[in-house]
Structures are given as C-alpha cells and as structure tokens.
Design a protein around this nucleic acid. Sequence first.
DNA 1: ATTATTATAAACAATTTTGTCAAACATTTA
DNA 2: TAAATGTTTGACAAAATTGTTTATAATAAT
Lengths: 203, 203
Amino acid sequence: MPKIDHDTKQKILQAAEKVFHRNGFKGTRTNQIAEEAGISRTMLHYYFRTKESLFQEILESTLNMVFTHMKRLIGQETELENLVAGIIDVVSDLFEAKPGLPSFIVNLFNESEELAYFLAHTQGDTVPLQLDTILRQEKEKGTVNLKLTGEDLIMNIYGLCAMPYLTMAYIKAKENRDEEAMKAFIRERRSMITSFVMKGIAP
Amino acid sequence: MPKIDHDTKQKILQAAEKVFHRNGFKGTRTNQIAEEAGISRTMLHYYFRTKESLFQEILESTLNMVFTHMKRLIGQETELENLVAGIIDVVSDLFEAKPGLPSFIVNLFNESEELAYFLAHTQGDTVPLQLDTILRQEKEKGTVNLKLTGEDLIMNIYGLCAMPYLTMAYIKAKENRDEEAMKAFIRERRSMITSFVMKGIAP
DNA sequence: ATTATTATAAACAATTTTGTCAAACATTTA
DNA sequence: TAAATGTTTGACAAAATTGTTTATAATAAT
C-alpha cells in the first residue's frame, strides 16, 4: 500500500516538463529540473530511475496531449471557414495549455531524426487530407487561392500560432511585458490569426 | 608568419555553426562538432580555446549575418506592398543561406533570457516602426485591416518563413523529400507566402 | 638539409553531469 | 508502540564531457 507522497513526484514532473520543453533532452541538466522543482536531485532518481526515463514520461504525456487535442478536429467541420477557425482554436488552446510545446517539438525534431520520422508516419494525415479535399472543392468553385495546398495551410497556421511561444523571451523583453501582458497579446493574436488566414486563402 | 592551414579551422567553423544552430550551446557536445568536421576533437581546442569561445565566434558571425541582411530593408520602400514583398524576400534569403538560423534563435532565447533581452533592446526597431507608419496610413485610406500591428505583421512573416526550417526533419520525412525536393518546396512557399500575406492584411 | 614553426592525434587530466548507496527521518500498519 | 515501508538527504561513485599535455608529423624558412 503506498504511503503519502508529499507531491514531490508531481513537482518533478511539472518541472521536468517545463525544462525539457524549453531545452530538449541534451540541453537540460537534471539539476535545473531539481532546482525548478525545489527538491534535491536525488529524488529525481528515486521516482524516475534516470534522466532518460523521466524524459520518456514527459515525451509520452506530451504526445498524448497533442493527439488528444488533435482528435477534436477530425471530421468536425466540412465548411472551410469553420474548419479553419476550428483548427486555429484547437492549436491555440493546445499551445496556451502547454506554452513550451512549440519549442519542444522543434528540439525533438532537431535532436532525433528517428522520432521526426516516426511522428511523420504514425500521426494521421486526416487533417491535411480533409483540408485538401475541401480546398479542392473550393478551388473549383473559385473561392480559394489555387496554389495553396493543405500542407501549406496547416503549416501556416501552426507557424502563426507558435511564433509568440517560440520567441517568448524576446517578445516579453521587447515591450516589457509581464505574464499578464503576454497572455493578452496572445489572446488578441488569436482573432487576428483567424481573419488573417481566412483572407489569406481567398482567391 | 602563419604556416598553411589545411582548412581545418574553416571545417570546424562550418561544423560548429551547423551543430550549434541545431542544438544550441548546452545541447551540443563538442565531439558532434568534431565528427561533423571530420577532425579530432583536439583541433577544436587548438584553434578555439574552449567550447564557449567557439560558440562566441559562431554567435557573433551569426548575428552579423542577421544584421547585414536586415540592413537591406531600411528605408527601401514606402509602398506597403513592395515593403512587405521586400521583407519576405530578405527573410527568405537569410533563412535559405542559413537554414539552421531559426532553430538557433529559438534555442538562444530559451537558453539565455539575458541575450533575448539584449537583442530585444539593441536591434533597431526601424522595420516594425516603418511598417507601423505605413500601416497607419493605409488604415486611414481603408486599404488595410484595422487590427493588425506592425509587430504582428513582422511576426507573421517570420513565422511563415521559418516554419519549414523549424520542422525540417518532419517535413522531409513526411513526403520522403530529399535536399532537392526540400529546396523546391521552400522556393514555392516563398511566392505563396507573399500572396498569402498580402491578402491577409487586406481590410 | 637543418631548424623553427605549425598541425595533428592520442593519451592523459580535470570538470561536470549523472547515478548509487547508506543512514536518517517520516508515515503507516499491526 | 514497534515493525514495516516509504521518503529524503548527503556523501560517494561512475560516466560523460571538456580541456591539456606530450609526442609526432608536416610545412616553411634559412
């Protein structure tokens, strides 16, 4: 029967997520995690054998989060405008919940070709494909830019949504923004992005 | 009088740039650099005392490159459409010349709050300010979306241009693209981005 | 050709980072 | 309360990473 856990384990997980997300596996030192969690580094080995296996947990829970969010998209909308708005909302919600996620993904792809390959081939293509179908229909109707592929559109949306997170430190410093100002900036960007993208795909 | 240098120094610089750009300072191991350069790790200390000072060289030359490119923008154009197209070209050229740059900047901001602060405050605001001025004029004319700031517009452009580089490994894996296919993809994106942005800022 | 200088690598040393262990402490259960 | 189990820490050990030295080879200058 388990004895009480002074929530050390949770503190470690939170701290590890934060640090791994920001600096990737090779870029983080386990004592950054310990400091961030306010515990001794030994505890990290007590609850999770190694740095590697702690990373694995974070990786799994992170990918789960991503997949869960993405499921919100599948087959939801058939109207281009609604679909696009929906994607932007889902992606924005995801990044708002996990601000370190964009950096983490970038780090992941840079650190491990294999993982990039794995993700490229396991992750369902439903969303880009659905977009492609709808885009093709709209192109026939002449209501959409001819040269835009579903892949490009998705990439544009991710890029527009991820930027403030990827450059957080800079954006904060630039206009002396605190956490609150940052949140406001990002909130305002969401509607900006939606209209920017909708106009952007016009013929 | 210096004896010949079997271009080892250059090979190290090239390799270091590649690896530091991809993985940041803490994320790189000096022997990754040595391997990439095809030389022994000792040489790295022979030409550049320490990992730190090698990084410093790469950092300086990288920032120089960025500033040099950015100078191409200042006061060049007063017409919104031309200015926007110009910015997209300059940024695209820069990333094409230094494909690792987007990741490097992201890593930099994540590794060092101080550097992010420094860059936010030294780097001239001329471009965003110029954009803001022109945007304001266009808004009065009613030819531009009311809610778009110069800061947002710049961020959008960087994001759209940087995405393929930030997710290179994934993009390559996804459609089995080799170097050539990748270049073609990016070339095509440039004109897509230009029209996407131009439409995006419409009223 | 001989010497002086530069370039290279391999072995070695120092430092940093990660991982383990044993002892102390706390909590539960019996 | 006492045994059993879970938690925490600090000291220690191992491994990985960085940095230095020494010996050797290559190149240039005299």
